[in-house]
Amino acid sequence: MRIGALFLGLFRLLVYTFLLAPLVIVVLASLNAGNFLTFPPQGLSLRWFWTFLENDVFIDAIVYSSILAAGATAVSLVIGTMAALYFVRHAKREAEIVRIGVLLPLILPEILTAIALLFFFYEIGIGTEYKIALFTGHVLMTLPFVFLNVTTSLQGRDDSIELAARTLGASRYTAFRRITLPLIAPGMATGGVFAFIISFDTFGISFILKGSGSAPLPIQLYDYLRFNFTPEAAAVSTVSIILTLVLVTLADLLFSRNSKA
């Protein structure tokens, strides 16, 4: 029994290590002073971060990805929250259809969805012009995450609280703003952060629909990695990881303050 427990503990430790390994390795590799991605690093330095800062391609990609993610998140937040409100409050027999429908972009293989969108936009004559297809794809990818998080924050809530506010003289709009919105705000915040990160990191959609001109960060990284093997990619990745962590921490702070109030 003792040995069994020990073995199980060791196994768990291995799995946790396995989960964190690539993350740790990328960060360590970015601090490599050498020219190639070798291990152990040939001394520590931040030189690849400076190289990255002077490389317009990656800087542009990060800016471009951020704008794309912010836009897609904003649209998803509105559409996804509305859908969640409908699903929890009003959907009856059609509830399961609504849920599966909104989650379709998550359930269907991303690369296939990307291809389907590509054909569709070619059929209607737009193709990958004006980044419309790319933006639509990103909204689709992020929508399920907003929907799931807002739904969770709505479920288990007493449906009658908004009605209670109405009996106390609040208008439909006031009741929503003063009662419902504060309740779903944490769900929206978490959903928004998820959406932003998903959009920032999504590959299949961006890869197929990027069109010509500037491309999102994952695509630039992928292209770079196919032909180069310097720690600069690791530096870019590290910056991207830090950005994500900052965002998650911010949302967490916001969320915990909200839930305390």
């Binding site: 989960l19 993350l23 990328v26 990160i197 920032f200 994952p218 990695l225 690791a234 990745s237 990881i241």
Partner: peptide, 29 residues
């Protein structure tokens, strides 16, 4: 820890594995 792979893009994650598993990668060296 469990969610950490989700917070890093798929390109970076796969890239991490190439550093680990490559012929002159961490494990082999």
């Amino acid at each position: 820890i469990v969610l950490s792979p989700l917070l890093i893009g798929i390109v970076i994650r796969s890239y991490g594995w190439t550093i680990l598993l490559g012929n002159s990668g961490v494990i082999n060296s």
